[in-house]
Design a protein around this nucleic acid. Sequence first.
DNA 1: ACAAGGTTGTAGCCAAGGCTACATTTCGGA
DNA 2: TCCGAAATGTAGCCTTGGCTACAACCTTGT
Lengths: 150, 150
Amino acid sequence: MMTHEPPADPDDPALAAAQAERFSQARTAQAQALLEDYTEMIDDLIREHGEARITDIARLMGVAHPTATKAVARLKREGLAVSRPYRGVFLTEAGAEMAERVRSRHRVVVDLLIAVGVPPESAERDAEGIEHHVSDETLMAFERFLGGRG
Amino acid sequence: MMTHEPPADPDDPALAAAQAERFSQARTAQAQALLEDYTEMIDDLIREHGEARITDIARLMGVAHPTATKAVARLKREGLAVSRPYRGVFLTEAGAEMAERVRSRHRVVVDLLIAVGVPPESAERDAEGIEHHVSDETLMAFERFLGGRG
DNA sequence: ACAAGGTTGTAGCCAAGGCTACATTTCGGA
DNA sequence: TCCGAAATGTAGCCTTGGCTACAACCTTGT
């Protein structure tokens, strides 16, 4: 049955465009992923320690500290965070909103994975990558699914 | 309840390492994603047209043709594909195996999304990004879940 | 009070994966 | 046949997200 893989017929412009659009979208989602991860991490750290220090961000993200600095610079550029030299990093309102959204989505994804039988450890691990590709419609479906089984 | 988000306590080396490892792994998966996508695409084209041309690959992936050329160069470097100038691209045995694995995983992911209530269109769209982060354990869980409701 | 050590910033490198512009090759139709 | 259009290759640019090395800045203990 051919319901899964679309024919990918290079002669059909519509199908080709649709296919290209999916990959394009996956690439876009990936570009967002870094923002989301750092935003949530900063939010986590502030909740627990009242501040988010570059060193801690870097260590928890598993990168060298200049990499974290660059990421924070991008967050600032995008209006998600603020910081002053040698002070911690803080989220703007937009950043806090994103963090909340990301945190909630992460929880739902992990819960769904566990609900369909994925071992919790794998669920936590895979969710880190999966969550960035879960659209709003898919997220809602996950919530319905989880809700429908208490 | 704290079962989802680990405390992310920067003072606990073990937790920090585990957290870092998850992000690290997500980054690795992302690096593999391009290989997987192109490999499957080439396999698709060969199945349908007997050959995979750079132009078609590029169009279906939604990129300019030199981008596809670069990707194929990487596939060749990694021993997944072969090609001669102005001839099509072909998969090595390793490439064909990867394509088969990726195709199968893609199908399972789409089926699972649909099974938990995601609209087919969204399922197809999101699966493109999600599949690359589905580990073997998670994949097996998906298959069990699908099997158990046949 | 101040030196040592940890933290942060900055400079500059690399590879990957996009792109455009241009050169070359192939191939099909007049 | 052979010429023009399409396909492919190549060069070179940009941004991103890694890294190391080094400089500047805090902070803390003696």
